[in-house]
């Protein structure tokens, strides 16, 4: 299965009218990274958005304090799914401490519009479209808060 990172960048711009659903975000939704991936999970957590019904499980495989593999499962909207996909794509190989620090930054960028800088800004750029849609921020945040639960449950 092709993954989001392998999507062609020059697809027709049919989504211009829908600011929330940008190409890059839709690419993650349609070909998510880590979705239903079978990993040897050492830690996991379930996250639910009671108001909208997003229900997601984040699983990670940690070896010697580094995230060797990430996966997510469940039923969620495209925003939540894309956010989880980006998380799975970009956190592999980082240490638990690095992930927790990055998670704080991503959460701040989503909930308080604090700009990301450096590599993270590029990696999570598609999530920025949520900025103008306050009611959907919770969807993008859910994978991150769930990931933190998974990691905190272990430490």
């Amino acid at each position: 299965m092709s993954e989001a990172s392998q999507q062609k960048p020059d697809q027709p711009a049919v989504h211009d009218d829908h600011a929330l659903y940008q190409q890059a975000l839709l690419a993650h939704h349609k070909s998510p990274v880590g979705y239903n991936l079978a990993i040897v999970a050492t830690h996991s957590a379930q996250g639910v958005n009671a108001t909208c019904g997003d229900d997601i499980k984040i699983a990670v495989e940690i070896e010697q304090n580094y995230l060797q593999a990430l996966a997510f499962y469940g039923d969620s909207c495209a925003i939540c799914r894309a956010s989880a996909s980006m998380l799975c794509q970009h956190l592999k190989g980082l240490s638990v401490a690095e992930v927790l620090a990055l998670s704080q930054k991503v959460k701040a960028s989503l909930s308080e519009n604090v700009s990301l800088i450096g590599v993270a800004a590029e990696q999570f750029e598609p999530l920025r479209s949520v900025e103008k849609f306050p009611v959907r921020k919770q969807c993008a945040l859910l994978p991150w808060t769930t990931l933190e639960q998974a990691l905190n449950a272990t430490s």
């Binding site: 929330l20 108001t51 909207c77 495209a78």
Partner: peptide, 21 residues
């Protein structure tokens, strides 16, 4: 298609529906 995506996309066309439980 998740219902929240449906509602968001309808909203972008000025169509107000409820999504959720």
């Amino acid at each position: 298609v998740h219902c929240h995506d449906v509602a968001s996309l309808l909203d972008s066309n000025n169509i107000a529906v409820r999504a959720g439980h």
